[in-house]
Design a protein around this nucleic acid. Sequence first.
DNA 1: GGGCGCCTCTGCACCGATGTAATCTTCGGA
DNA 2: TCCGAAGATTACATCGGTGCAGAGGCGCCC
Lengths: 346, 346
Amino acid sequence: MNAPRRAGTATMHDVAALAGVSIKTVSNVVNGYQFIRPATRAKVEVAIGELGYRVNITARNLRQGRTGMIGLAVPELSLPYFAELADSVISAADAVGLTVLIEQTGAVRQRELEVLSGQRRHLTDGLIFSPLDLGEQDKSSFDVDFPMVLLGERIFGGPADHVTMNNVDASRAATEHLIDLGRRRIALIGTHPGETMGSAALRERGYRQALEGAAIEFDPALLGDAGLWHRSTGAEAMTRLLDSGVELDAVFGLNDAMALGAMHVLHDRRIDVPGQVAVIGFDDIDEASYSSPPLTSVVPGREEIAQMAVKLLVDQIAAGGARRPPIEIVAQYTIAVRGSTAPQPR
Amino acid sequence: MNAPRRAGTATMHDVAALAGVSIKTVSNVVNGYQFIRPATRAKVEVAIGELGYRVNITARNLRQGRTGMIGLAVPELSLPYFAELADSVISAADAVGLTVLIEQTGAVRQRELEVLSGQRRHLTDGLIFSPLDLGEQDKSSFDVDFPMVLLGERIFGGPADHVTMNNVDASRAATEHLIDLGRRRIALIGTHPGETMGSAALRERGYRQALEGAAIEFDPALLGDAGLWHRSTGAEAMTRLLDSGVELDAVFGLNDAMALGAMHVLHDRRIDVPGQVAVIGFDDIDEASYSSPPLTSVVPGREEIAQMAVKLLVDQIAAGGARRPPIEIVAQYTIAVRGSTAPQPR
DNA sequence: GGGCGCCTCTGCACCGATGTAATCTTCGGA
DNA sequence: TCCGAAGATTACATCGGTGCAGAGGCGCCC
């Protein structure tokens, strides 16, 4: 059987027949070719309107070898940071006429590898990829033959363009902010023991640097491990810390979701924030501004990251496969100080 | 110039040449056709591996007239409800082998109309659409000639399948919950004056029914208008209400984001929740469980909605254009009672 | 008036796969 | 040994557009 044609779906051929011109002329009209007599253009446009004709993008894609779509692979949209990132990427892509195809990997190794294997290579012109499970040991897998930009901290000096931020510095600054408030017993939530790369390890490094700089002894009892960085895992880590009886006067959540989960537990236990325990997060998701108290957080420059990623990808696509040395871009961070670390104004 | 071919991108033709078989045999291997001699299959598979060949999905789509993708048009991913909805839809679609193409309309009329105009008709096999600006007066625009499922409360009895929930009942139940707590001055945040359809109007209707049932007089001074339902607009509405000096002992946010924005303001002003003011929201986003205090909310059955929407769409696609009377599905709701309306346990 | 060049439009091959139907093999059974 | 059916493979048209090259037509200039 031939491909079924849905009722009402006219082709360029039909339009050409109705307008009494060649199919190529219809194509020219549709694509805004300049040398068309106004009368001809009008005839074609009338026919298009009459038939409700729409260009078949699939056919055009096939012929042109491009799709006008880029992939965005993130762990989960239900993680606010990635939802907001997706929003920013979609907007940035929209601005240059590209459509974004979102893929959720669930931070599962197998799914992340599938993304790289390029099943969708022909469906998208390039890929913006934020891996969470693949890391340094998979570096070679990232050497793909299609345009790709990596986000995040899993890979450095890899074979692809990379947009990241200075996690170590940002984390040190966040920790120093707590130290400046006079806090000495700072819990760290979301650590990944044994890792040396990735957001968790880098941010822990910054935390340690800050402690060292202030001559505060590092205490492993203050580390709250959490694999996936959700509100729930942050809450669980906080609960474990409190139940362990370890003394603490501040909490640094390695992302906002966990910091908010931790604050939830503190609130539950009637521990005053920031009076007894100051809390700081990382990512500055919208939610951070509206929690009670509002959450101080590291602002990672999400818009900037999204725009740079799209720009790099567009450059690669325009280069048409010509290789150049990979570019690494480091976005600027700032810290937004809010009520969770500041004495509340009256 | 012909379409550029990216290095390393082999076609079925190349594989056929290398394996010494016809192109159609390669196609048969790729598609799991059963009558292929093992030796032939092996030869082809070796060639595929050697060339790193991947099927060109665009070409397949063109030939088959289907794309295996469905569109999901939502206002914004940065609104948590829609991010979580997208997550659910993607998972449900994935389970039946479909890919989701997300489109952000920004709740802008023009963009919503574009979605319906079917520019992407050929790129997707169907559309799940959650309009926020188009409404009853645009009913005819929803009579499209491609598979579509509507979500939300902007349209009823329209020409397309529709998955919704009983907003009036749910809202009445939420309001009654507050009344049961002894609250009499219940502010409503997120109203859209003048509308008679849409979530805002329906939920306001439920609110009024509950008041009526409890013989509480409706007071328009307790309505806080808010166009877009963000945290920020909820906070602004709450601020206006408090500044107006109107007496209130409860707040019903027409979605969670606004309820959380309102709680933020209450916290700022040192108004105890739920002691002085009880707060309830709508949507039960993940964040609601982790706010301080946790937010009581109407649970709209998001997973169920996503699964039903995908199922209805798949049915329509399978029907191949055959029309049937539109189906309307009403998802079940419940209320999750949390700290923002319950006296906190000690 | 012939020639040149620009405007306008058309024919045709082709993008990379798949459906159909036909052809060629193979093998069991009479 | 021969025949027929099932197994295995192939040629070819086709999906709906676009790039390229070229054919007319027309006006303008020398």
